[in-house]
């Protein structure tokens, strides 16, 4: 089976005034389909830059990036947009939903930009199905400001799911959530991962990283640690322990 993500000697440098900033220096990484990777590191460690490149939002200065066997390091903006649309789902720390737009319409957004034409009825049906998958079928017509943080993040996940991506990229998806809600979101991710979707997630929190299968730590633009998770957490189990997080019951 070919790897889903293959970085070969990836280099990314920025010109910040007179100074050249080397954000990512010679990173090579292989992620197989079905993996669940947590990327950790202090700010400035280059993890965001690497994730932007993996997410086809940015192009590497040097090196190669193969996504699903296709070299995407030299594609133009429009082609990259198509690849993001077809293969990648994004989940952000700040949810990044369109305000004053209902949950279901937010979920429809990537399908509106899909190159293959779908009928509005098809799009609506798929959006509702995606919302049901994250347990928000009854909140379809709610607006983001009528939803809790956890619910908003679920809408964002539904949006990431609707085009059947092979990869979900999550940038600190639990950064704005309390512990119990964070575990619930991890539960959603683990469920999706079990169904075969590859997930890469940036996080600062060690116990959130423990929900992944593999942990990567970056420092100064290089990968310093890359190891499988030994004592993996399972959200389903943790949520069943009533004493685990007594302070966070109301939030979800």
């Amino acid at each position: 089976m070919k790897p889903l993500i293959q970085l070969e000697n990836l280099v990314k440098t920025y010109q910040s005034g007179e100074v050249e900033v080397r954000a990512v220096r010679n990173v090579s990484l292989v992620v197989e389909p079905g993996e669940f990777v947590a990327v950790m590191g202090a700010s400035g460690s280059g993890k965001s830059t690497m994730m932007n490149t993996i997410g086809c939002l940015d192009r590497p200065t040097a090196g190669r990036y193969l996504l699903d066997g296709v070299d995407v390091s030299a594609l133009d903006r429009a082609r990259l947009a198509d690849i993001r649309n077809e293969k990648i789902g994004f989940v952000f720390q700040g949810f990044n939903l369109l305000s004053r737009t209902s949950a279901v319409e937010n979920v429809e957004l990537p399908m509106l930009y899909a190159r293959g034409a779908k009928s509005p009825r098809d799009i609506r049906a798929r959006a509702l199905a995606a919302l049901a998958m994250v347990g928000l079928a009854d909140r379809a017509e709610h607006f983001p400001n009528q939803l809790s943080g956890g619910q908003q993040q679920r809408v964002a996940i539904a949006r990431a799911l609707c085009n059947d991506p092979s990869l979900i990229l999550a940038d600190e998806p639990t950064g704005n959530l309390d512990t119990r809600t964070s575990i619930e979101i991890m539960g959603v991710f683990q469920k999706l991962n079990d169904s075969g979707i590859t997930i890469m997630m940036v996080t600062h929190e060690l116990d959130i990283a423990a929900f992944a299968k593999r942990n990567i730590v970056m420092r100064d633009g290089v990968i310093v640690t890359d190891k499988p998770v030994e004592r993996r957490h399972f959200a389903a189990e943790e949520l069943n322990q009533p004493t685990a997080q007594p302070n966070a019951v109301a939030a979800a």
Binding site: G55, L57, R77, A78, A81, D82, R84, N85, E86, F90, N96, L97, L98, L109, P110, Y113, A114, R159, N163
Partner: peptide, 16 residues
Amino acid sequence: TREIGIRMAVGAHGSD
């Protein structure tokens, strides 16, 4: 700007 960023992230072309 943020809305534009979101749209682009999920696959909007510049022309869209």
